[in-house]
C-alpha cells in the first residue's frame, strides 16, 4: 500500500490529564517517601501527616480531573470495583485506580494514630467526632500494632501509582514518544524527584524543626541523584527517538523546538535545580532560598514534563 501519512497530535487527553498524572505521581511518591522515612529513618508525626495528607489530597484532586472528564460518571463504578483486576488485569487504568484507592485507604489508616495525637484535626468538629468513635480508636490500635505492614501496603500502592502514570502512557502503541520503556522510568523518577522537592519545600517553610536537618540533607541528596537519573533517562529517550519512526522524530521536533520544554522543563526544571542542589550537597548553602528555589523549580518542571509529553504525542494517520 502506498499511503500518505498525516502526523498529528491528539486533542483527547490534554492538560487535565497532565494534572492527573502529575498529582498522581507527586502525591503517591510523597506518601511513600514520608512513610518510609517514618518507618525506617525517624518516626515523624508531622511528616506522616503531611505526606498522607498531601498524598490523599493530590490524588483526590488528580482523580477528580479524570472523573470530571468521564463521559459516563456513573459507570466509574466498574473500575472502583476491586474485582476489575480479575476482569481487566491488562488495563493499567484498572490497576491505577485500585492503587489510588488502596493507597488512600492504607495511607489514611497509617496516619490515623498520628492524627489522633495531633491538635489541629481536633479543632474540626466533624473530624473530632469521627476520630473519637470507639471503632476508630480500635482501628488506630490495630494499626499501631501492624504499623509496618500497613505502612508497606500504603507504600506499595503509592509506588504502584507513581509507576502506573508512566505505564499508562507507555501502553499507547500508536505514539512512539510514549510507547517505550523509558517512559515509566522517567515518570517514576520524576514522581519521586517532585515528591522530594515537595517535602523539602514543606520542611523549609512549614516545619522548621532542626531535628529534620539530616532528613533534609538526605532528601537533597536523593533528589540530586533523581534529577541526574532523570536527565540520563531523558537523554537516552532522546537518542532512542531521534533515530526512530517519523512520528517519533516529529514528537522530538515538537518538544525540542518549544521553549516551555527546553528552557522551562529541562533548563529550569532539571538543570538549574541540579546545579543548585549540587552546590548544596557539595558545599552547602548559607540560606535556604536556593534549595527552596530548586525545589519549586523541580515541582514546576514536573508538571511541564507531563504537560508537554501529553501535547507532543504524535499519531500517524494514513490516507
Amino acid at each position: 500500500m502506498d499511503v500518505n501519512m498525516t502526523y498529528t497530535t491528539q486533542e483527547i487527553w490534554t492538560w487535565w490529564l497532565a494534572i492527573y498524572l502529575y498529582f498522581g505521581g507527586l502525591g503517591a511518591a510523597t506518601l511513600a517517601v514520608t512513610f518510609l522515612t517514618d518507618m525506617y529513618l525517624k518516626p515523624d508525626r508531622g511528616l506522616v501527616i503531611w505526606g498522607a495528607g498531601a498524598g490523599v489530597v493530590l490524588l483526590a484532586l488528580g482523580s477528580l480531573m479524570l472523573f470530571g472528564h468521564l463521559l459516563d460518571k456513573f459507570a466509574v463504578i466498574n473500575v472502583l470495583n476491586p474485582l476489575v483486576l480479575f476482569h481487566k488485569p491488562d488495563a493499567w487504568i484498572a490497576w491505577g485506580t485500585q492503587f489510588i484507592i488502596w493507597m488512600m485507604v492504607w495511607g489514611i489508616l497509617y496516619a490515623l494514630p498520628y492524627v489522633r495525637e495531633t491538635d489541629f484535626p481536633r479543632k474540626v468538629p466533624f473530624i473530632r467526632g469521627l476520630i473519637d468513635q470507639p471503632f476508630v480508636i480500635g482501628i488506630a490500635h490495630l494499626v499501631k500494632r501492624f504499623r509496618r505492614a500497613v505502612g508497606w501496603l500504603a507504600v506499595v500502592n503509592g509506588v504502584g501509582v507513581a509507576v502506573y502514570t508512566g505505564l499508562l502512557l507507555q501502553s499507547f502503541p500508536a505514539v512512539p514518544l510514549w510507547h517505550n520503556p523509558a517512559v515509566p522510568l522517567l515518570f517514576t523518577i520524576s514522581a519521586f524527584s517532585t515528591a522530594m522537592a515537595f517535602l523539602l519545600v514543606v520542611m523549609y517553610t512549614l516545619m522548621h524543626d532542626q531535628a529534620h536537618e539530616h532528613v533534609r540533607v538526605l532528601y537533597e541528596r536523593i533528589d540530586l541523584v533523581l534529577i541526574a537519573a532523570e536527565l540520563v533517562v531523558l537523554f537516552s529517550l532522546y537518542q532512542y527517538l531521534k533515530n526512530g519512526s517519523e512520528s517519533a522524530v516529529r514528537s522530538l521536533e515538537l518538544l525540542w523546538n518549544d521553549y516551555g520544554w527546553v528552557v522551562g522543563f529541562i533548563g529550569f526544571g532539571l538543570i538549574a535545580p541540579f546545579f543548585l542542589e549540587l552546590k548544596g550537597v557539595i558545599q552547602g548553602w548559607r540560606s535556604r532560598v536556593p534549595i527552596l528555589t530548586a525545589s519549586v523549580l523541580v515541582l514546576i518542571g514536573g508538571y511541564l514534563l507531563r504537560h508537554y509529553f501529553m501535547y507532543a504525542g504524535v499519531y500517524a494517520y494514513p490516507w
Binding site: 459507570a75 470495583n81 474485582l83
Partner: peptide, 13 residues
Amino acid sequence: LGAAGLTLLSPAT
C-alpha cells in the same frame, strides 16, 4: 464469582 461480584457491585449497569 467475578462476574457475579461485578454485577452485585454494579446496580446501575
